[in-house]
Simulated scan of single mutants.
Amino acid sequence: MFYLRWLSLALVMILLFPFQVLASDSSLNLHSEAVILLDAKSGQVLYEKNSKVKMYPASITKIITGIMAIESGRLDEEATTSKRARWAEGTRIYLAQDEKKPLHDLVYGLMMNSGNDAAIVIAEHLGGTVENFAEQMNAFVNEKIGNNESNFVNPHGLFAENHYTTAYDMAMIARYAMKNPMFREIVSTKRRVWHGAEWESHLVNHNKLLWRYDGATGIKNGYVTQSGNTLVSSATRGGMDLIVVALKAQGSEKVYADTIQLFDYAFEQFDTRRLFSKGKRWVAEDGKAWEAIEDVFLTVKKGDSISYKVQDNGDVLAATGGKKQMITGKLVGIEDKMAESTLSLGPKEEARSVEESSERSSQLFLLGITGLLFFILAGAWMWWRKASDKSKKAS
Score class of each variant (00 low, 15 high):
Tyr164Ser: 13
Phe297Thr: 03
Ala246Pro: 01
Asn205His: 13
Val310Glu: 02
Asp295Lys: 00
Lys52Glu: 12
Leu22Tyr: 04
Ser362Met: 13
Phe297Ser: 04
Ser358Asn: 05
Phe133Met: 03
Leu11His: 12
Gly228Met: 02
Leu231Lys: 05
Arg237Ala: 07
Lys220Gly: 03
Ser201Cys: 08
Thr129Gly: 06
Ala174Pro: 03
Asp117Ala: 13
Ser227Ala: 13
Ala134Asn: 02
Val310Lys: 00
Glu285Arg: 06
Asp39Ser: 03
Tyr164Glu: 10
Ser201Asn: 02
Asn154Thr: 13
Ile293Trp: 01
Thr189Trp: 04
Ile63Gln: 02
Asn138Tyr: 04
Ala58Leu: 03
Lys323Ser: 08
Met182Pro: 01
Lys83Ser: 13
Ser388Glu: 03
Arg360Glu: 13
Arg360Phe: 15
Ser24Thr: 08
Leu11Phe: 15
Ala339Gln: 10
Leu30Pro: 07
Ala23Phe: 01
Lys144Phe: 11
Ala257Trp: 03
Val245Gln: 00
Ile122Gln: 07
Ser353Cys: 10
Trp194Cys: 06
Ser32Val: 08
Phe267Tyr: 14
Pro57Tyr: 07
Val316Trp: 00
Tyr168Arg: 10
Gly238Val: 07
Lys337Tyr: 06
Ile64Arg: 03
Arg237Ser: 03
Ile60Thr: 11
Gly43Pro: 00
Gln44Val: 07
Lys254Cys: 04
Leu9Ala: 14
Phe374Leu: 12
Glu135Arg: 15
Glu350Asp: 10
Lys348Gln: 15
Gly239Lys: 06
Val332Ala: 08
Ala378Thr: 09
Asp258Gln: 11
Arg86Gly: 11
Lys179Leu: 09
Ser388Gln: 12
Arg385Trp: 05
Ala284Arg: 01
Trp290Pro: 01
Asn147Trp: 05
Ala292Glu: 01
Lys248Leu: 01
